[in-house]
Deep mutational scan, measured.
Amino acid sequence: AVSDRLIGRKGVVMEAISPQNSALVKVDGETWRATSGTVLDVGEEVSVKAIEGVKLVVEKLE
């Protein structure tokens, strides 16, 4: 799938994300809905860990 190429890519949080709420991230110039197990604020850099349906699963870039 096209989205599989995004695993391992870096992105930027466009809307705050919490474990209860998905929000938008920008990866390679494209906007995607994403979820995370932690709270992520706007502007934080993230890494794509997986794809669940049409959502990216991201975590904060260390």
Rank of each mutant, 00 (worst) to 15 (best):
A23W: 15
G11M: 00
L24R: 04
G43M: 03
K60S: 07
E15P: 04
R5L: 08
I7M: 05
M14F: 06
L61P: 05
V39M: 11
M14A: 06
A16R: 12
A23D: 02
D4A: 09
V58G: 01
G43S: 03
R33T: 12
E59W: 03
M14S: 05
S18T: 12
I17P: 13
G29K: 05
K60D: 02
V42K: 08
E62T: 12
S18N: 10
A34W: 01
V25E: 02
V13W: 02
V25S: 01
V27I: 13
R9N: 07
G43I: 01
G43P: 01
K26P: 03
G37R: 10
Q20H: 12
V13F: 00
S18M: 08
G8I: 02
R9I: 07
V48T: 02
K55L: 15
A23L: 15
D41V: 15
T35S: 08
K55G: 09
R33I: 14
G53A: 04
G53P: 00
E45K: 08
W32H: 08
S3F: 11
S18F: 09
V42F: 04
K60E: 03
L56V: 06
K55W: 15
D4F: 07
E44S: 09
V39T: 12
S47R: 15
G37Y: 13
L61C: 09
R33Y: 15
L61E: 06
V2I: 13
A23V: 14
L24S: 06
K26Y: 13
K26S: 11
V42S: 04
V42N: 02
G43E: 01
R9S: 08
K55Q: 14
V39G: 08
T35M: 09
V48Q: 00
D41R: 15
E15V: 12
L6I: 07
E45Q: 10
E62C: 12
E15F: 08
E45D: 06
L56S: 00
T31L: 15
K49C: 12
W32P: 01
S22Y: 13
E52C: 14
V46D: 01
I17A: 15
V39P: 14
K49A: 08
E62P: 12
V42T: 05
L61G: 05
T31K: 05
L6T: 04
Q20D: 13
A23G: 15
A23C: 14
S22V: 12
K10D: 07
V27M: 03
S3E: 08
I7C: 10
T35A: 06
E59N: 05
V25K: 00
S18H: 09
V27S: 01
V42Y: 05
V54S: 14
A50T: 05
N21Y: 11
S47P: 01
L61A: 08
G37A: 14
K49Q: 07
L24H: 05
L24P: 03
P19A: 12
E59K: 05
K26N: 10
R5S: 09
D4Y: 07
G29S: 05
A16F: 15
A16Y: 13
V2G: 10
L61N: 06
A34Y: 06
E45W: 15
G29H: 05
G29T: 04
V27R: 00
L61M: 09
S18W: 10
S18V: 07
A50L: 06
S47A: 10
V39E: 11
R33S: 12
I17L: 13
V42M: 05
V58S: 00
G11F: 00
V2C: 13
V12C: 10
D41S: 14
G11D: 05
D4N: 11
A50W: 07
L6Y: 05
L24T: 07
A50I: 03
T31Q: 08
E59P: 00
V48N: 02
R33P: 15
G8A: 02
L56T: 02
D28H: 04
R9P: 04
S47N: 09
S18Y: 10
V39W: 14
D28E: 07
T38I: 08
G11W: 00
V25H: 01
V46W: 01
G29N: 07
L56M: 05
V57M: 05
G29I: 01
S36D: 05
V57F: 08
K55M: 15
E15K: 09
A1K: 11
G37H: 14
S22W: 13
I17S: 15
A1F: 12
K10S: 07
V25A: 01
Q20Y: 13
E52L: 10
Q20R: 08
T31E: 09
L6N: 03
V2K: 10
G53M: 02
E44Q: 11
V13I: 08
T38Q: 14
T35P: 01
K55D: 09
G8D: 05
G8C: 08
M14L: 13
L56Y: 02
Q20V: 08
V2N: 11
T31D: 07
S18A: 08
W32K: 01
L6R: 01
V12G: 01
V27N: 01
S47Y: 15
S3C: 12
E30V: 11
T31R: 05
R9W: 07
S3W: 11
A16C: 13
E62Y: 12
I51Q: 04
E15T: 10
V25Q: 01
G37V: 13
A16T: 11
V12I: 12
G29D: 07
K10A: 06
S47G: 05
P19F: 10
I51R: 04
L40R: 00
V54Y: 13
I51P: 01
G43C: 14
E15L: 10
A23P: 07
V27F: 03
V27G: 02
T38G: 10
I7R: 01
V48M: 01
V2W: 11
T31M: 14
D41H: 15
S18R: 08
V54R: 09
K10I: 13
V54D: 15
K55E: 13
V27Q: 02
Q20E: 12
E30R: 08
L24K: 06
S47E: 14
L24G: 03
M14T: 08
K49Y: 07
V54M: 14
V25F: 00
T38C: 13
K10F: 11
I51Y: 05
A16L: 14
G53L: 02
V58A: 00
A16G: 08
K60Y: 04
E59C: 08
E45L: 14
A50E: 06
V48A: 00
G11N: 01
L6Q: 02
V57Y: 09
V27C: 03
L24A: 05
K55P: 02
L56Q: 00
E59T: 08
D28V: 02
V57H: 06
E62N: 13
D41G: 11
E44N: 09
L24Q: 05
G43N: 05
G37S: 14
V13H: 01
M14N: 02
R9V: 07
N21E: 09
